[in-house]
C-alpha cells in the first residue's frame, strides 16, 4: 500500500491534494454558511477564460486563470455595488462572459486539445513541479488569511449587520472571501479540474455541518473529511485506474451520505 509513495508523481499528487483540500474545506464552511456556495462555480467559469487566454498567448495557464479570476471576482463585486442586480446575477454575468471568451478563443485557436481538458477535469498525477509549488503557495495563503482573520470572518458569517457595529470592515472581508475563493479555485485546477473545483469547497463543509459541532470543530471536521477523500481518492484511482477527480468527488459525496446516516442513527438512539 505504501509503495505508491515511492513514486515522485504520487508524492507530488498527495502533497498538493492534501494542502488544497485543507484550504478549500476551511473556506467552504464560511461560504456555505453565508450562502455563497456556488460562487466557486462562477469563478471556475471565469478561470476557464483565463486558461484559454493563457494557452492562446503561450502564458502559463495558471497565471491566466489567476488574473482572470481575480479581475472577475472584483468585477462581480463592482457590478453588484453599481447596479440593482443581486449577487447571483452578477456572478452569472461575469462568469458566463468569461466562459464565452474562453470558448471563442479556443475556436479561434482551432478547437480543444488535451491541455484544456486537463484543466477542465484535473490531472493531479501529471502535475508539474512549478504547478505544485503554485498550488501550494495559493493554498497556504488562503489558510494563513483564514487564520489571521478568523474571528472577524466568524463574526460576519454569523451576524454581518451587528459585526458592522463592532467596527469590523465587512466590505473588506466580503471582498477578501471572494478573492480567497478565486485563489482556491485556481489552486484546485490540477487536483479536480475547473468542472469540479467547487465541489471541494462545498461538499466537505456541507458534510461537517451535519455533525452539529461548534464552529472550530466544524472547520476541523471539514478539513479531515476533505483530506481523507483526497488520500483515499488518490489511492483508489491508482489501484483501479479510476479518474482521480471523479473518485475524490464521489468519495466526498459518500462522506456526505455517511453524515446523514450518522445523524439519523444518533437521533434514533437519543429517542430511545
Amino acid at each position: 500500500m505504501l509503495e505508491i509513495l515511492e513514486y515522485a508523481f504520487m508524492q507530488k499528487a498527495f502533497i498538493t491534494g492534501i494542502v488544497i483540500a485543507i484550504a478549500c474545506s476551511l473556506l467552504g464552511v464560511f461560504l456555505v454558511l453565508r450562502r455563497y456556495a456556488l460562487i466557486g462555480d462562477g469563478i471556475a467559469h471565469i478561470s476557464f477564460g483565463g486558461v484559454a487566454t493563457g494557452l492562446l498567448f503561450n502564458i502559463t495557464p495558471f497565471f491566466g486563470a489567476l488574473i482572470f479570476s481575480l479581475i472577475g471576482s472584483l468585477g462581480i463585486l463592482n457590478i453588484k455595488a453599481k447596479t440593482n442586480l443581486y449577487g447571483d446575477s452578477a456572478i452569472g454575468i461575469v462568469s458566463h462572459s468569461s466562459l464565452g471568451i474562453g470558448i471563442f478563443i479556443l475556436s479561434v485557436a482551432n478547437g480543444f486539445n488535451i491541455d484544456i481538458l486537463s484543466f477542465l477535469f484535473g490531472s493531479i498525477l501529471a502535475i508539474k513541479q512549478s504547478e505544485m509549488v503554485l498550488s501550494i503557495v495559493l493554498a497556504v495563503i488562503v489558510i494563513a488569511v483564514i487564520y489571521f482573520f478568523y474571528n472577524e470572518l466568524f463574526s460576519i458569517t454569523f451576524d454581518e449587520n451587528t459585526s458592522k457595529t463592532f467596527g469590523i470592515k465587512t466590505g473588506f472581508l466580503n471582498t477578501l472571501l471572494i478573492v480567497l475563493t478565486a485563489l482556491t479555485i485556481v489552486g484546485s485546477m490540477r487536483v479536480v479540474g475547473l468542472m469540479l473545483a467547487s465541489s471541494l469547497i462545498i461538499l466537505p463543509a456541507a458534510s461537517a455541518l451535519q455533525l452539529r459541532l461548534s464552529f472550530k470543530k466544524t472547520l476541523f471536521a471539514s478539513a479531515i473529511i476533505a483530506v481523507l477523500s483526497v488520500i483515499l481518492g488518490l489511492y483508489l484511482a491508482y489501484m483501479f485506474d479510476f479518474a482521480v477527480s471523479g473518485t475524490i468527488v464521489l468519495l466526498n459525496t459518500i462522506m456526505f451520505i455517511l453524515t446523514q446516516i450518522y445523524k439519523k442513527v444518533k437521533s434514533m438512539l437519543i429517542k430511545k
Binding site: 454558511l33 474571528n151 454569523f158 459585526s163 469590523i168 455541518l209
Partner: peptide
Amino acid sequence: ATNFSDTFPASVQEIVLTGSLS
C-alpha cells in the same frame, strides 16, 4: 442575527466572544 438559524454551528462562548472585537 443575520445568518442565524438553529443549525448554525457555533457555541454560546464563540458568539459572546465576538462582542469583544469592538
